[in-house]
Structure formats: C-alpha cells, structure tokens
Computed example of a mutant assay.
Amino acid sequence: MRIDLNADLGESFGRWRLGDDEALLRLVTSANVACGFHAGDPTTLVRTCAAAAERGVRIGAQVAYRDLAGFGRRFIDVSADDLYADVLYQIGALDGIARSVGSRVTYVKPHGALYNTVVHHEEQAAAVVRAVAAAGALPVLGLPGSAILTAATALGIPTVREAFVDRAYTPEGTLVPRTTAGAVLTDPAAIAQRAVRMVTERNVEAIDGSVVATEAESVCVHGDSPDAVAMAAAVRDALAGAAVELAPFVS
C-alpha cells in the first residue's frame, strides 16, 4: 500500500512569513506551491521550487483566485474566460520557475475557495480544466466526486483523489467550512490516527459521527497551520508504522 503526502507551500509574501517550507519539504512527497495570486512572491517561489527539486519532491501548481488580501479563501464570481486565463497564467509562471531550477510542474491543485467552489460549480470547474488542458493536460488533484475531477476525466486528463487529514468532513464527503467550529484539526496524534484510517480503511468519521468513504491517492496537511511540521511528521511516522509506503503519485 502506498500514498502521496502533500502540503501547501511557498505561501510567504515579502516580509510576511507563513509556514516552515524547509522543514515540510523533508517530510512530504508533493508540494502544492503557490503561484502568486493568493500568496507567494517570485523570490519565495524560486526558493521553494529549488528546495523541492533538491529533495526530489514533486511540484504542483497551487492555483487560486486573484485574492492576495483574502489568502484565496473568498469566493470570486469571475467569468469563465477570466478564470481560464488566470489559471493558465499561474501554471505557466510556476512551471517556468520550476524548470529554471531543474524541475517542472507535474500536477495542478486549486487552492482555498477555488478548491471548494469547483466541487460543485460546473462552469468554474470547466474553466480550470480547460486551462489545465492548454497547459499540457497535467494531473488534477481534487476531492473525490467533485465537478473538477468529472470535467477532467471527460477531457482525458488524469485525476488524483485527495483526502485532508487535518480538516473535518461533512456527511456528504465535502470539507466543513472553516467558519464552523471544529472544521480545522490541530492535534498531531489524532491527525496521524485519522491519516492511517483514511489510507488503510478508506474511510473517516464525519463531523456528525457518520462514516465517509475516502478513496484517496494523496493526503494533505495544510502548510499554514501552526503545527504543520509536527502534523506532517506524525502522519509520516504513523503511515510508516502501518506499512504504508510514502511516494509521489507522479513519476
């Protein structure tokens, strides 16, 4: 049994520092690197991609709404054509940086509000997938059963199902909004146990106590959480203890 471990990285901006990218890059197998629209300045992105390349960590374009002030966590009713162009721009910019340090962008993952929106919003999901197709049909990382994965499959674009070890789930298998109490989990030991259950038993307990299926090929730890490094380390150790191999989902 094997699983990919991913985290959101490259989200610092100027003098504003967020997360410990260097430490997380020693633990994860895939890095969802910000592309400058919700976070990440060019210097940060170069540094993050170079560190990922040095450690053999796969680089993904963490595309988002144009929302620096809101960290990409606010829905934007953007037109399909504008969203297509924004996503295409972000993938191309990050891929140029990644190639300059001897690596490349190998997949795409929406961030924040865009990630949650394209679970159900078919028009925005189609716009994102159209941009991915134009950028080389890279694998798309997303929530199982989401509109974006359905749209990607329809165009023959590889999809990767994802589960979140540090976020609460609704009974429908979507993420509980961050504004709801208990939506974000913080205890490394409990998160590690959830990760093992998600991967080995393929399910997790939802916020109401029901059981939700988790057919995941990658699990995520949010890099901006205060204890992200401790969480990722605990998850990695727990999975290894359960005889689960950690490996990227792309070669």
Score class of each variant (00 low, 15 high):
A31N: 07
A31E: 02
N32L: 11
N32D: 06
N32Y: 02
V33K: 06
V33S: 01
V33M: 09
A34P: 07
A34D: 08
C35K: 03
C35I: 06
C35R: 05
C35D: 03
C35N: 05
C35M: 02
C35F: 05
G36I: 08
G36F: 06
G36N: 08
G36D: 05
G36Q: 03
G36L: 12
G36Y: 09
F37R: 09
F37C: 00
F37G: 00
F37H: 14
F37Y: 15
F37P: 00
H38V: 13
H38E: 12
H38F: 12
H38N: 05
H38C: 09
H38I: 13
A39P: 02
G40P: 12
G40Q: 09
D41W: 14
D41P: 11
D41Q: 09
D41C: 13
P42M: 13
P42K: 10
P42N: 06
T43S: 12
T43D: 15
T43G: 01
T43H: 14
T44P: 02
T44A: 09
T44M: 15
T44K: 07
T44W: 06
L45W: 10
V46N: 00
V46D: 00
V46A: 04
R47D: 12
R47E: 14
R47Y: 00
R47T: 15
R47H: 12
R47C: 03
R47S: 15
T48M: 11
T48H: 09
T48V: 14
C49F: 06
C49P: 07
C49M: 05
C49H: 03
C49L: 08
A50V: 08
A51D: 11
A51F: 01
A51K: 08
A52N: 07
A52V: 10
A53Y: 04
A53K: 04
E54P: 00
E54F: 00
E54A: 13
E54S: 11
E54T: 07
R55N: 05
R55P: 01
R55C: 04
G56I: 10
G56D: 03
G56K: 12
V57I: 13
V57Y: 07
R58S: 14
R58A: 15
R58G: 12
R58D: 00
I59M: 05
I59C: 02
I59A: 01
I59Q: 03
I59N: 03
I59T: 05
I59G: 01
I59F: 04
G60N: 07
G60L: 10
G60V: 11
G60K: 04
A61L: 13
A61S: 13
A61G: 10
A61I: 13
A61R: 08
Q62F: 03
Q62E: 15
V63G: 00
V63D: 01
V63N: 01
V63T: 12
V63P: 00
V63M: 04
V63K: 01
